[in-house]
Design a protein around this nucleic acid. Structure first.
Lengths: 146, 146
DNA sequence: GTTGCGCCTTAGAATCATTCCAATTCGTTG
DNA sequence: CAACGAATTGGAATGATTCTAAGGCGCAAC
């Protein structure tokens, strides 16, 4: 029965990145990451839990939190926050902004030219050393596709 | 009409703004606002509570939350969030960014030229209508003055 | 191939900020 | 002064997340 590749090695080399940090690749971590890559709608931990459970019924919410934290640590996903709402997770690693639709609660990635990030950084007074910039728009999105 | 102005009418016309929204000016609201204007270090609700209590020992934390919410509603202060930390409050109404010092937890206002805000907005794809932009830097600030 | 050892996962308790609720107080107005 | 609605209050409730203690599991050494 070994001809079935039930878990094809992860397309993006998750096992590799984990190993780089001295961590193991586990079914839970693979699956959580998979879920994030598959539906990139910035799900919350609860939503990830719901998507993962059918596949791995024994998994616990605590583990989902652990896995997400691990993935963030390994720079495989980004944690995103709006106000004090539940943390959302985003597998898009290129610098980008987020648009939070107040009507639907949906989150959209907004690509920005790198030069804009540079210009923002350039505005920091001397003595301020930023290692991250976060940009969030809030408003209504009337995407025809939705 | 007494000649004693025990509570000098608030320098920034809080009573006025409240009235505009059909709300009353109360000692609690005045004091909470005062505290925010006096020390503009982006305090949390708990910190505001602590600063307000000596002046008005009977005040409750719930009231502080209520007052802060009211002030935000009246556009007298802005609520600011970092990650999932407690909400902080900022009486600076001009558009500006925030720098969150990861070492000290301190928050600094960063003024940005309006043109930058405009450029950011201009990057939004058609169909996205933003009514607010939030910009947050994270990193270390080695302010000599502090 | 059994034994350790340490990493992972798990369930449930604990935490923290915030909101909700029902009861009381306060200012105004009638 | 009586009544009404707005504001405040303390405490309970909520929701997301983290902590904790107890197994499990895989892999290396024997």
């Amino acid at each position: 029965m070994s001809t079935h590749a039930q878990h094809a090695p992860h397309p993006t080399g998750l096992a590799q990145k984990l190993a780089d940090s001295g961590l193991r690749s586990t079914p839970q971590r693979e699956l959580v990451y998979d879920v994030l890559l598959t539906k990139r709608d910035h799900p919350t931990a609860d939503e990830v839990f719901a998507r993962v459970k059918p596949e791995l019924p024994g998994i616990s919410l605590a583990t989902v939190y652990n896995c997400l934290e691990t993935l963030v640590q390994c720079d495989l996903v980004r944690a995103v926050n709006f106000e004090r709402g539940p943390t959302r997770y985003c597998p898009n690693l290129c610098p980008h902004a987020h648009f939070h639709d107040e009507a639907t609660g949906q989150t959209h990635d907004i690509d920005l030219p790198p030069v804009l990030f540079a210009k923002l950084r350039a505005e920091l007074p001397a003595g301020f050393d930023a290692n991250a910039v976060e940009i969030t728009f809030r408003g209504k999105a009337k995407t025809s596709s939705n």
